[in-house]
Amino acid sequence: MTATVSNFHYGAVTPIAAFLMACLGAALGLRCTTRSLRRTYRSRRAGWLMLGAVSIGCGIWTMHFVAMIGFSVEGSPVSYDSTLTLLSLAIAIAVVSVGVFLVGYRGATPTTLSVAGVITGLGVAAMHYVGMAAVQTHGSVEYDAPTVVLSVLIAVTAATAALWAAVSVHSLWSSMGASLVMGVAVTGMHYTGMASVSVHITQQASATQSSTDLLSFLLSMLAGPVAALVIAAVIVMFDPDLVLGEGEWKAG
Score class of each variant (00 low, 15 high):
residue 134 A to R: 00
residue 158 A to E: 02
residue 168 S to P: 09
residue 104 G to L: 04
residue 122 L to E: 10
residue 122 L to S: 09
residue 90 A to G: 15
residue 101 F to P: 03
residue 117 G to Y: 01
residue 120 T to M: 04
residue 171 S to N: 11
residue 153 L to F: 00
residue 71 F to L: 12
residue 110 P to H: 11
residue 126 A to Q: 03
residue 91 I to V: 15
residue 156 V to I: 10
residue 117 G to P: 01
residue 135 V to E: 12
residue 156 V to Q: 03
residue 99 G to I: 07
residue 164 W to V: 10
residue 144 D to A: 15
residue 173 W to P: 11
residue 127 M to N: 04
residue 74 E to N: 14
residue 76 S to T: 15
residue 75 G to S: 11
residue 143 Y to T: 07
residue 129 Y to E: 06
residue 147 T to Q: 14
residue 168 S to D: 09
residue 100 V to D: 07
residue 115 V to S: 05
residue 108 A to Y: 05
residue 70 G to C: 05
residue 89 L to Y: 01
residue 117 G to N: 02
residue 177 G to R: 10
residue 118 V to Y: 02
residue 167 V to I: 09
residue 141 V to S: 08
residue 77 P to Q: 05
residue 126 A to W: 03
residue 72 S to Y: 12
residue 104 G to A: 03
residue 95 V to Y: 00
residue 104 G to P: 07
residue 58 C to M: 13
residue 96 V to A: 14
residue 133 A to D: 14
residue 142 E to Q: 15
residue 149 V to I: 15
residue 118 V to A: 13
residue 129 Y to D: 01
residue 150 L to T: 15
residue 100 V to T: 15
residue 134 A to E: 02
residue 124 V to G: 02
residue 72 S to C: 10
residue 168 S to M: 10
residue 75 G to E: 08
residue 159 A to T: 04
residue 160 T to W: 10
residue 100 V to Q: 13
residue 57 G to P: 03
residue 153 L to Y: 03
residue 166 A to V: 05
residue 95 V to D: 05
residue 141 V to W: 05
residue 171 S to H: 12
residue 164 W to G: 10
residue 142 E to K: 13
residue 135 V to Q: 14
residue 78 V to A: 10
residue 131 G to F: 00
residue 147 T to H: 11
residue 75 G to Q: 08
residue 106 R to L: 15
residue 132 M to A: 07
residue 176 M to V: 14
residue 150 L to F: 12
residue 59 G to Q: 08
residue 161 A to L: 15
residue 109 T to P: 13
residue 90 A to M: 14
residue 144 D to R: 13
residue 107 G to D: 06
residue 155 A to E: 06
residue 65 F to S: 11
residue 94 A to D: 05
residue 167 V to C: 07
residue 139 G to W: 03
residue 107 G to S: 04
residue 57 G to M: 01
residue 97 S to K: 01
residue 70 G to F: 05
residue 106 R to I: 06
residue 160 T to M: 11
residue 144 D to C: 13
residue 140 S to H: 15
residue 125 A to Q: 03
residue 167 V to M: 02
residue 165 A to E: 04
residue 142 E to A: 14
residue 78 V to E: 13
residue 110 P to V: 11
residue 73 V to L: 02
residue 72 S to W: 10
residue 160 T to N: 11
residue 162 A to E: 08
residue 59 G to I: 04
residue 105 Y to Q: 02
residue 147 T to S: 15
residue 94 A to M: 11
residue 64 H to K: 06
residue 129 Y to P: 08
residue 110 P to L: 08
residue 71 F to P: 09
residue 94 A to W: 06
residue 135 V to F: 12
residue 65 F to A: 09
residue 126 A to T: 12
residue 114 S to G: 14
residue 88 S to M: 02
residue 117 G to F: 03
residue 118 V to T: 12
residue 120 T to Q: 03
residue 143 Y to N: 08
residue 133 A to S: 14
residue 123 G to T: 00
residue 166 A to R: 06
residue 153 L to R: 01
residue 130 V to L: 04
residue 157 T to M: 09
residue 68 M to N: 07
residue 92 A to Y: 00
residue 162 A to P: 07
residue 160 T to Y: 09
residue 156 V to T: 07
residue 137 T to W: 00
residue 149 V to T: 12
residue 141 V to R: 04
residue 142 E to N: 14
residue 155 A to Q: 11
residue 131 G to M: 02
residue 110 P to R: 10
residue 96 V to K: 10
residue 133 A to L: 10
residue 153 L to E: 01
